[in-house]
């Protein structure tokens, strides 16, 4: 249930504006890969191209290849809806469906896939909530609205919702930036656990977080405002934080960034 992502020569455009230029990388299965870099360097944009969520933004388009175990996500005849069922996503702000109960939130993806059997739904919901380290906190109030949980719980609910459909890859776009330190810690523990089963890609502004949770780190940067973002360096996390190959990476992680 985890696949390798191979990206080659990827450019992302918003209309005429080139937002990300020539990114090539390999994301290993059953590992956590962190994207770091200053705001506006295109790391979130790039992340969205991995499950074609960028297509939600009008005018966004992509050149290049994203291969998920030998299958090109951008080949003709590939349905973005199908891609997103294989590559799940968790967003910056927790976004449980406000009118749905906790149970229905987790079950929503399964229902989209046509699962109607109550027993199966119940089973998967319980397993996903366990998987998201949330079961013990919500098992007595599954019928309550998901929006009634705390921010950190909501985010774990969103992770439970994402893993309920058993995707190959989970993308996380700054999943902790709206959370307090304790909730952040809970999510980080969870990411550690998720990588046993899934390929996890996480965008973060928090370098300690990248150092704590990831196996590989990719540093993105942009030459100047208005220029496209580029992948500067990608290496095992230890190496990036102890002995980066590029000067720009070192400047960024040591805080000497201009």
């Amino acid at each position: 249930m985890a696949k390798r992502i191979e990206v080659s020569g990827l450019n992302v455009y918003y209309g005429d504006f080139k937002a990300v230029e020539d990114v090539s990388m390999t994301v290993e299965p059953r590992s956590v890969t962190a994207f770091i870099g200053p705001s506006g360097c295109g790391k979130s944009t790039f992340l969205r191209t991995l499950n074609r969520m960028h297509e939600v933004i009008p005018g966004a388009r992509v050149e290049g290849k994203v291969m998920l175990d030998q299958q090109d996500l951008y080949a003709s005849g590939v349905d973005p809806v199908a891609v997103r069922r294989v590559v799940g996503m968790v967003f910056q702000r927790p976004n449980p469906f406000p009118t749905m109960s906790i149970f229905d939130n987790v079950a929503s993806g399964l229902k989209l896939n046509g699962v109607k059997d109550r027993k199966k739904l119940t089973e998967v919901v319980e397993r996903s909530l366990h998987g998201a380290n949330l079961w013990n906190e919500v098992k007595d109030r599954l019928d309550k609205p998901g929006a009634g949980l705390s921010g950190g719980q909501q985010q774990r609910l969103c992770i439970a919702r994402a893993i309920a459909v058993e995707p190959e890859v989970i993308l996380m776009d700054e999943p902790c930036s709206a959370l307090d330190p304790i909730s952040t810690l809970a999510i980080e523990d969870l990411i550690e656990k998720l990588k046993d089963q899934f390929t996890v890609v996480i965008v973060t502004h928090n370098m300690q977080q990248a150092a704590r949770v990831s196996d590989q780190t990719a540093f993105f940067n942009l030459a100047a405002t208005g220029k496209p973002g580029r992948l500067i360096e990608m290496a095992p996390t230890k190496q990036i934080f102890s002995n980066p190959a590029e000067k720009a990476t070192e400047d960024y992680i040591t805080g000497r960034f201009g």
């Binding site: 499950n51 969520m53 939600v56 809806v81 199908a82 891609v83 997103r84 069922r85 799940g88 996503m89 967003f91 702000r93 976004n95 449980p96 469906f97 406000p98 009118t99 749905m100 929503s108 993806g109 989209l112 896939n113 969103c158 919702r161 994402a162 459909v165």
Partner: peptide
């Protein structure tokens, strides 16, 4: 309808109509 709700549905692999049913219609009810 907040874009977060809509993206939440889309990221689960909802089609446009499913996205509308899951996020837009409940919000606009």
């Amino acid at each position: 309808t907040p874009i977060a709700h809509r993206e939440g549905a889309l990221a689960l692999g909802a089609t446009k109509w499913e996205m509308i049913r899951m996020s837009v219609l409940p919000y606009g009810r």
